[in-house]
Amino acid sequence: MAKITLNVDGKAHGIDADADMPLLYALRDDLGLRNPKFGCGLAQCGACTVLVDGVPTRSCVTPVDSLDGRKITTLAGIQKDGKPHKVQQAFIDEQVPQCGYCLNGWVMTSVALLEETPKPTDKQIREALTGLKCRCGTHISMLRAIKRAAQA
């Protein structure tokens, strides 16, 4: 066990954990955050995505001891003044989720995309979101939502 400090959503948190424990378990079990979800543990689906220094990162395969001095942002950290982020608002307006289990990854990746490319083309959106999985098949409404967020 090692003492590890994680900077999550603007706050420093000290935890005791195995150095190689994936960040996902620290976020869910030690910090009590529920938005990053366990989907595969293999970095294949994106349900566990957080931003590390603004870059979408699969927390299920990121060891906790690799994050010293890094800024971690979770879904809980993208809202401002208690209001949904514009990506979230667009996902609500478009009624995107069905089961909603994958949603964290799509929202976080879209937030990062719009930071980098505020007015993405359809192709850029599809490329940025490649690799994320949605089993309910809400792909079309997600594309609509991201385009809507880009207009917001």
Binding site: R28, R34, N35, K37, F38, L75, A76, Q79, P84, Q88, F91, I92, Q95, V96, P97, G100, Y101, L103, N104, V107
Partner: peptide, 14 residues
């Protein structure tokens, strides 16, 4: 159920 799912404020079994 959409807003709590999108803002991450609802519980899943996990």
């Amino acid at each position: 159920d959409v807003p709590p799912k999108v803002t991450g404020t609802g519980d899943f079994v996990v």
